[in-house]
C-alpha cells in the first residue's frame, strides 16, 4: 500500500509549557509529515524534541496549538484510541514488562484492541520471527540482550499495525553494531509497509542518513534538511 502523498501528521503552533508556564518546552512549532515518510528529529538535551514526539504520539496534550492526524485535530478524549490503533512507540529504555515473556510482551498492545486470543499469539509470533527472534519467543526480558530487547519492542510497536512508528532515541542504549542493525530494521519496516517513521535522535550519523532531518533547539524548529518551508 502506498501511503505517501498527503500529510498524515501536522502540528500547528504547538506550545507546551510546564511548571505553570515557567518552563517552555515548545514555543510554537509548525510541522507537516507525509504518510510513509521517514523523518529524523535531532537537537540537544532539553531542546523539546521528546516533548514534540510525546505530543505527536498522543501521550500528552499541548498547552496551545494543535496536532492533526489525517487532517483531524486530536481530541483529548480520543488519545487512547489514537495510540492503540495509529501509533507504535519505541523507547530508548525498551520498556518491556519484566513479568512477561517476549511473545507475551508483543501481545500487550493487542489486549487494548480486543483482538482474539489465538490471533494475538500468532501475530506476535510472526512479528518476532520477522525480527529474527524465533528462538527467543519464550524468554523473559532479563534473559535477552539489549539488541534483542529493542527488537521485541519494535515487534510490540508493530502489533496493532499502526500508521506511524515513533521512536525516541531507539539506539540510545545500544552498541554501534546493534544500533546499525536496529536502524536498518526500522527503515526496512518503513519501506516494506509504507509506514511513517519518526525518529528522535541525538546521533548525527542517524539524523543525517534520514531523507528528512529536522533540527530543534529551545522549543523551536531550527532547520530542515533538505530545506523546506512549513506552511
Amino acid at each position: 500500500m502506498n501511503k505517501t502523498a498527503c500529510p498524515i501528521l501536522e502540528v500547528r503552533q504547538l506550545c507546551k509549557s510546564y511548571d505553570e508556564g515557567r518552563i517552555e518546552a515548545l514555543r510554537g512549532v509548525d510541522l507537516s509529515i507525509s504518510a510513509g515518510e521517514y523523518v529524523a528529529i535531532s537537537g540537544p538535551s532539553g531542546s523539546g524534541k521528546s516533548t514534540l514526539l510525546q505530543l505527536m504520539g498522543g501521550l500528552d496534550t499541548p498547552t496551545s496549538g494543535q496536532v492533526l492526524f489525517q487532517g483531524a485535530a486530536l481530541a483529548a478524549s480520543g488519545l487512547d484510541n489514537y495510540r492503540a490503533h495509529q501509533v507504535g512507540f519505541i523507547f530508548q529504555a525498551f520498556y518491556l514488562l519484566p513479568t512477561l515473556r517476549a511473545i507475551e510482551n508483543v501481545q500487550v498492545p493487542m489486549l487494548a484492541v480486543d483482538r482474539r486470543g489465538n490471533n494475538r499469539a500468532k501475530r506476535a509470533e510472526d512479528l518476532l520471527v520477522e525480527m529474527g527472534l524465533e528462538h527467543r519467543l519464550n524468554q523473559y526480558p532479563n534473559e535477552l540482550s539489549a539488541g534483542e530487547r529493542q527488537r521485541v519492542a519494535i515487534a510490540r510497536a508493530l502489533a496493532n499495525n499502526p500508521s506511524m512508528l515513533l521512536a525516541d532515541e531507539p539506539t540510545g542504549n545500544l552498541d554501534s553494531v546493534n544500533s546499525a542493525r536496529i536502524m536498518e530494521m526500522l527503515i526496512g519496516i518503513q519501506q516494506k509497509h509504507g509506514m511513517t517513521l519518526i525518529v528522535i535522535t541525538h546521533e548525527n550519523e542517524i539524523a543525517d542518513a534520514a531523507p528528512r532531518h529536522i533540527r530543534i533547539r529551545d522549543g523551536l524548529i531550527e532547520g530542515h534538511s533538505p530545506t523546506r518551508l512549513e506552511s
Binding site: D80, N81, H85, V87
Partner: peptide, 16 residues
C-alpha cells in the same frame, strides 16, 4: 507506575 505508563502508551484505555 512506570508499567502502567507503558500500558497507557501502548493504547490501553484508562478503564482497561
Amino acid at each position: 507506575t512506570r508499567e502502567i505508563g507503558i500500558l497507557r502508551a501502548l493504547g490501553w484505555q484508562a478503564w482497561r
